[in-house]
Design a protein around this nucleic acid. Structure first.
Lengths: 249, 249
DNA sequence: TTCTATGGGAGAGCACTGCTCTCGCAACAG
DNA sequence: CTGTTGCGAGAGCAGTGCTCTCCCATAGAA
């Protein structure tokens, strides 16, 4: 299907080719779905409504997505990538020698994205759709988001003179983490710091979920500042002690 | 695990009265729904299937729950109470002078409940059903769960000689938390400890959600021990330094 | 006991959903 | 110019939440 006949030397193409039109239509379906999802939420997303909105009959969509779940999967992948991009860009705007501020920037970006795309956030980090098994190719875009946080921590330790916290008796953490994965993602970081990084990861998303899903109602008044405090506290656990440029050494 | 048995307790009457029959039928609807939900998940819960399972026509259910959301709300309230009971009982089995073990017991109980009732957990702490606004009377049962954790911490500080961490400059935490609520729930606990307690709360549920929703796949191998480590680390933040009976003073 | 009001199940029906299938048209390839 | 292929239209199936009407057994009043 993806065969492009490029040797025909076709010049000024006013109309898009079949393959281009297909990609364009896929993009139109996804953006319409995103718009409707923003209004009514992911589980309420209706193929028929998407079609109606596009001025097309519902069965036409099945030419592009064989099932509703496949459309959702495409939206999930896009959302992961969007969030990953957003967090990466926010992080890269902070000087590399200030990992604490980098963490704050990354975490705030994630939270900001979540608050402006609540339904897509819920799709990624809320309850998984029952009976829906995330396909293989969603894990790589999903990992990008976590990678933003982990690489800040890894870099901080790489450029630090401090010794990472060690597993004192050497037994506490044996077999707790998947070393195979983490050796690649957080090279040179001690096991306890890796564990605390995973802890920070779930802490950040736990906070955002609680805020977004309304569990803080009645206890947290200023969610912005509370979130900043939480990030700062967990940063203390995962960053080397000499990592704050303003704070001496 | 805390399953509700609908027992009229009345022996004199062979046939139940109208009111009793009604309560009994409500209980039957809820338990059938719970069973189906355990198989197919909350969003896939179908009134018609519940009715079919009960050997009754679907419209009959509307005599008891005016809408599907009302049935879900009833299930949510029951689930919060069930989880709250379970966590309370687990906590009360640990001596009061060991708050750290109490926290471990409470957190483990919550996690255990979540793993044996994953769909109900998702209903409580996953993405909220879109367009569904949790009614007033769900917040009290919801608060019970958080109360288990917060009262362990409050008790620990009450029976401790240590001074709770103070808000040094007095400005950092001003207006961050809802003092009105927390004064009642965590009396005599300093503001930073309250904030860290909320942090612990979302940390615990964040971990459980990540584990249950599959986000730890590829990074955490032994979730039991990882969870214990996380609880222990956060316990360090919220408990008074002299609170461990085994550790001197 | 008799009468009547009420509660609750049965069943039809409406508008909606995901999904399948067939048909016919238009753009492409050889 | 002649297949082949891609794609939209439309009908149709089984399922959904929910409403409405009908009808009967029961509970309470006379």
């Amino acid at each position: 299907m993806g065969k492009l006949t490029c040797d025909t030397g076709r010049m000024s193409e006013v109309r898009p080719t079949r393959a281009e039109a297909r990609l364009l239509q896929i993009e139109r379906i996804k953006s319409t779905s995103r718009r409707l999802m923003a209004e009514k939420g992911a589980p309420g997303l209706s193929l028929r409504e998407v079609a109606r909105e596009m001025g097309v009959v519902s069965s036409a969509l099945y030419r592009y997505f064989p099932t509703r779940d496949d459309l959702l999967t495409a939206l999930i992948v896009d959302a992961y990538n969007d969030l990953g991009d957003f967090a990466e860009r926010a992080t890269s705007r902070v000087p590399r020698d200030d990992p604490r501020r980098q963490l704050h920037a990354a975490a705030s970006a994630i939270r900001k994205w979540a608050k402006s795309n609540p339904h897509e956030y819920a799709l990624l980090y809320g309850s998984p759709v029952p009976g829906y098994e995330a396909p293989r190719f969603t894990v790589e875009p999903a990992a990008r988001v976590a990678l933003v946080l982990s690489s800040i921590i890894t870099d901080a330790w790489r450029h630090s003179d401090a010794e990472g916290r060690r597993d004192e008796d050497g037994k506490t953490l044996r077999g707790v983490l998947e070393t195979r994965t983490l050796d690649g993602v957080m090279p040179g970081v001690t096991e306890p710091v890796r564990a605390l990084s995973l802890m920070m990861w779930s802490q950040i998303f736990g906070c955002i979920s609680f805020e977004l899903f309304g569990h803080y109602k009645g206890t947290v008044r200023n969610a912005n500042r509370f979130f900043a405090i939480v990030v700062d506290e967990t940063a203390n656990l995962v960053l080397p002690p000499d990592s704050d440029p303003t704070r001496g050494t």
